[in-house]
């Protein structure tokens, strides 16, 4: 479905020196700085997948999405959708693609939502029956019909996102790119959006590629994750596989009757405060049952619980330096 081959993007950034002198200098002798936003990404996405692109700010997620959707020309490498190179056959490939950017609406500010849809219907030469069908489906998922007569400039952010999602689906694209679609949405709008992604994926077999900083989105939606940092691919695989590979540990939380907590040679105590102690252990070194048995032999335990390494942990590891999303 989608083949990304050695994809790279460099941005040329004009260096601006401060002051009038600097501005003049920049006019005559512009100095450029090269930013390697994306470096040598290769991966394959099958039809019907939902893939989450994650990485810290400035990792190159949006840049990758823009190249995959034909908005940006890659510096090197290629993107093929259904075998067609998107740079070479942009006009045709693009008809099969929908794109939504959470931060910038593509709706026409001066029109009513329905007028924007009608305009798109004509621009993409959408069959009237297909058009009505899509609106019907979108109404079922997002309740779009009640917004149709609203001028776009009067709509709330959440309503606009719904409008943008519907607009992106009108021409029935087989691939949908969503760049931070949940940004700024409240909990119920977020749920609506997640339901939207799941349903179009199920009903229409739409392949969805999304970037997000919301762990909930990832847990709810993405069977597959691609983690990038500094434009380089860090991980690619199922969430559970990535966890097993880069965070193959669990954490045992034990509560004792006093502040004395025993150590164990096969695990590391990562936390000890008051009566609570946390032990991080590798699955291959020891089982949870053995650990509990060993510890309780040394000291009586009041309560235990086990924490699986989750997405938070792999993100901390993959992003390096413990940066938070």
């Amino acid at each position: 479905m989608i083949d990304v081959n050695h994809l790279s993007k460099d941005y040329l950034l004009k260096k601006k020196a401060p002051g009038l002198k600097g501005a003049l200098k920049g006019l005559i002798h512009p100095q450029f700085e090269v930013i390697h936003a994306v470096r040598d990404l290769s991966f394959h996405i099958d039809e019907g997948e939902i893939v989450g692109f994650i990485g810290p700010n400035g990792a190159g997620k949006s840049t990758t999405i823009k190249m995959m959707s034909g908005i940006l020309t890659p510096t090197e490498g290629s993107v093929r959708i259904n075998g067609e190179n998107i740079t070479e056959h942009r006009k045709t490939v693009v008809r099969n693609i929908g794109v939504v950017f959470g931060q910038r609406s593509q709706l026409n500010w001066d029109l009513r939502l329905g007028e924007t849809f009608e305009l798109l219907k004509h621009i993409y030469e959408i069959d009237p029956i297909d058009y009505e069908n899509t609106l019907e489906v979108m109404d079922g998922i997002l309740g779009i019909r009640e917004l149709i007569d609203k001028p776009v400039r009067q709509m709330s952010l959440g309503q606009r996102v719904k409008g943008d999602l519907t607009a992106s689906m009108l021409h029935s694209p087989s691939v949908l790119f969503l760049d931070e679609p949940t940004i700024g949405l409240d909990v119920s709008s977020k749920f609506a959006l997640r339901r939207f992604i799941k349903e179009i994926n199920q009903i229409r077999k739409t392949t969805v590629i999304l970037t997000t900083h919301d762990l909930g989105d990832i847990k709810e939606l993405c069977e597959r994750l691609i983690i990038i940092n500094h434009g380089v691919m860090m991980e690619d695989g199922k969430l559970s596989q990535i966890v097993d590979r880069i965070a193959p540990y669990k954490t045992l939380v034990a509560e004792y009757y006093d502040e004395q907590a025993p150590e164990h040679e096969k695990c590391e105590m990562t936390f000890h405060e008051g009566n609570i102690a946390k032990y991080r252990f590798m699955k291959k070194d020891i089982t949870a049952a053995e650990l509990i048995a060993d510890l309780s032999r040394q000291k009586e335990i009041k309560d235990v619980s086990i924490e699986e390494a989750g997405i938070d942990d792999i993100i901390k590891i993959a992003y390096g330096s413990g940066s938070i999303l």
């Binding site: 823009k66 959707s69 034909g70 908005i71 940006l72 006009k91 693009v94 008809r95 693609i97 794109v99 950017f101 910038r104 593509q106 621009i123 993409y124 030469e125």
Partner: peptide, 12 residues
Amino acid sequence: KGTVATDMMKPV
């Protein structure tokens, strides 16, 4: 608004 790039993607 940064919508030129996406506008350029439409088949017009």
